[in-house]
């Protein structure tokens, strides 16, 4: 991927982050941080996938860990809970495509007249990726906070 492609990726993925923050009722002055979070999350995952050649599960885990650490540092300065930013930031890395193909294969399995083995294979392949990416995102968000906030207040 060229630098321009990375910049485009960064710019596009900022939009879902910002809009989800708006949907959650985040005040306007905090929206740029959520947009930045979304952009950093997706860019980190793209870099891990393309340049470091990691799998999507490891890349999603690293991306969500980066987001978590970033807002552990930023949120206390703004005096707001970091949940305000982290959830909106992970939206661009949600594995929607895999979940969709898993669901589609279930339906195709149901209506297919001939062999169903390819649909079973597609379902398990996409379903397992979806499950593990979601777990990786959740753990990536939660784990750094456990290291940073052992006995300190959250806000």
């Amino acid at each position: 991927m060229s630098i321009l492609a990375y910049l485009m990726d960064f710019a596009y993925s900022a939009v879902p982050g910002a809009v989800f923050a708006m949907l959650f009722g985040t005040p306007l002055r905090y929206i740029p941080y959520a947009a930045l979070g979304g952009a950093v999350a997706h860019l980190t995952r793209t870099v891990c996938l393309n340049n470091l050649e990691l799998g999507i599960v490891a890349a999603s885990f690293i991306a969500s860990t980066v987001i978590s650490v970033m807002f552990i540092l930023i949120a206390p300065r703004l005096k707001v809970p970091r949940l305000v930013f982290t959830v909106a930031s992970i939206i661009p890395i949600i594995p929607g495509k895999y979940a969709y193909f898993a669901l589609l294969s279930i339906i195709q399995m149901h209506v297919a007249n001939e062999t169903k083995s390819q649909f079973i294979e597609t379902f398990f392949e996409n379903g397992i990726i979806t499950l593990f990416v979601m777990l990786a995102i959740g753990m990536g968000i939660a784990m750094p906070a456990l290291l940073f906030y052992r006995n300190r207040p959250v806000v």
């Binding site: 959830v87 959740g138 939660a142 906070a145 456990l146």
Partner: peptide, 14 residues
């Protein structure tokens, strides 16, 4: 995408 409930659930479990 119920992202908020999911992240809150994971955080609470952890």
């Amino acid at each position: 995408v119920p992202g908020f409930q999911f992240v809150n659930g994971i955080l609470d479990l952890f």
